[in-house]
Design a protein around this nucleic acid. Structure first.
Lengths: 150, 150
DNA sequence: GCAAAATAATTTGTACGCGATCCAATTGCA
DNA sequence: TGCAATTGGATCGCGTACAAATTATTTTGC
């Protein structure tokens, strides 16, 4: 990505010089950071993202969740089945359009929301940077993502 | 609309406000950007990262590759077997220490390096930001990653 | 009206990612 | 020297990710 040489002998930039690798490894690092905290809630990191999305707006269909999280329905379907099996959500066809499956939080699922603030507090502490710095980095990363998704 | 129990109406940030989600989704976006380019080389994105690492230094063992890429042997072992099956690398025990498996590029694997510069050129063009901007973002992301991995 | 196109989910197959666990080779130290 | 602890890989199980194909339902174009 930031390399110049095209000739086969010249040293190619190491992965440490590639922005894509930074994002790739930083994303994994966050998953690892979340894991022990989410284990207590019985959630994986992607499952947690779905729950956060639903805590903000309940009753979305699979397509809408996919748009919010940039995930395909083939990823979400089994994930949602596991959340269903765990008793955190319900999956019902929309009577107005039987193609859609509406996802609703159960009482258990809603109740879990209060534990989430503890998780967020722990994460913020682990990152240990002021809110403004984090916001600036996030903005840059979002810009890159939106650019390459266009 | 959505009814919200008294203790659960706290302004929980949406996933779009979470840095971890920005990194998570940006990482996926890069994988998607690479996919069609790497398909031509018969590589997946993680396989490509391994190849880049080996193009820079041939003959590393699994542990060293794992340190460079922040990946576990349980991830690398099957991935390396696939690269082996594809004829791009060889896996041989180190005679000096039979615990180690040394990874060496085959001629085919070395030859693939020249195609990689085309890939890098395409990616750089798609990102469409000047090198200095990219470097600054990368530095911020690396700082975060190293911070939460400590 | 109604067949064709479009849409929403699901299923299937391949490939990560990683915790947990196991095994063989090596090292350390009493 | 002898054996326990350590180390490097491999294996297993579970849960993502995503392309491609399938099914069910709705919309459309004529």
């Amino acid at each position: 990505m930031t390399d110049t040489p095209a000739d086969a002998d010249a040293p190619l930039s190491d992965v440490t010089g590639m922005l894509c690798f930074s994002l790739y490894s930083a994303g994994h690092a966050f998953t690892q950071l979340y894991r022990p905290l989410l284990d207590d809630l019985g959630l994986t990191y992607p499952q947690y993202l779905v729950m956060v999305t639903l805590w903000n707006r309940d009753g979305q269909n699979v397509k809408e969740l996919g748009r919010a999280l940039f995930l395909d329905s083939s990823t979400l379907t089994p994930l949602l089945k596991r959340l269903d099996a765990a008793g955190l959500i319900t999956r019902t066809r929309n009577p107005k359009d039987e193609r859609e499956v509406l996802i609703h939080l159960t009482e258990t699922g809603k109740a879990l929301k209060s534990s989430a603030s503890d998780v967020m507090r722990c994460i913020a502490e682990a990152v240990g940077l002021d809110a403004e710095t984090v916001r600036a980095i996030k903005e840059s990363v979002d810009t890159i993502r939106d650019k390459i998704k266009s």
